[in-house]
């Protein structure tokens, strides 16, 4: 996927590849604090939500920052036999074994290219489950008002509907917000 689609206002290029999410987050927090101070706190912080943008194929998606544990740019993936096709294997992250998910394939919208360079993996978690899903490109972290999130488009394909929790406009373009609990449903691959 060499021809990266240009999404209007999508600030993907501003992110230094490999830059620590913590640093990015810190930057965002600082700028957020500054802008808040400047705006004389029109918005309460509670009304805002941080989302991380990422690209799968030609589409941009978003995930809540609170669901993200870390982003890994360098890892060694080990394939595991007899798993569903959207499981690319496992990785060893500081002694912890995590599954590697091809989210695009899971959603049946294509698949990521794992033959070339290592693609960035976003580690998402909830109380019970953790996985690292591979994306074509990591975008920016942006703050959006919570009430800007709309229900998913009704025209969305049934296969993808369960993965999308809602949709929202970021800098003028429509982005699907992922339903993390669907991604994190435990997998039992038998028979």
């Amino acid at each position: 996927m060499t021809d990266q689609p240009v999404v209007p206002g999508m600030p993907g290029a501003e992110v230094v590849p490999g830059k620590d999410l913590g640093i990015i987050a810190a930057d965002v927090l600082r700028s957020r604090a500054e802008s808040l101070a400047a705006e004389a706190e029109i918005h309460e912080l509670d009304d805002q939500m941080g989302i991380l943008l990422f690209r799968l194929g030609d589409e941009w998606y978003a995930i809540k920052v609170e669901d993200v544990r870390e982003i890994d740019q360098e890892y060694a993936r080990t394939p595991i036999p007899c798993v569903p096709d959207f499981i690319l294997g496992v990785v060893n992250i500081r002694g912890e074994i995590l599954s590697v998910t091809d989210l695009a394939r899971m959603m049946r919208i294509g698949s990521v290219d794992v033959t070339g360079d290592i693609l960035p993996a976003i580690v998402v978690h909830n109380d019970d489950c953790v996985t690292a899903f591979v994306v074509d490109e990591i975008g920016d972290i942006v703050d959006v008002p919570v009430d800007s999130i709309e229900p998913p488009l009704s025209t969305i394909d049934k296969l993808q509907a369960e993965f999308i929790a809602g949709s929202l406009y970021v800098n003028g373009s429509l982005v699907g917000l992922m339903n993390v609990s669907r991604i994190l449903e435990p997998i039992v691959a038998v028979g």
């Binding site: 036999p81 007899c82 599954s99 994190l184 435990p186 997998i187």
Partner: peptide, 27 residues
């Protein structure tokens, strides 16, 4: 012995993984 992680609860033919000295993960 390590498990396959919380996401992969049961995978046929694979009981878990181990990490070898060089950091290599082996099913």
């Amino acid at each position: 012995i390590k498990t396959l992680g919380s996401h992969l609860q049961k995978v046929e033919n694979v009981a878990g993984v181990t990490i070898l000295g060089a950091g290599e993960v082996v099913p």
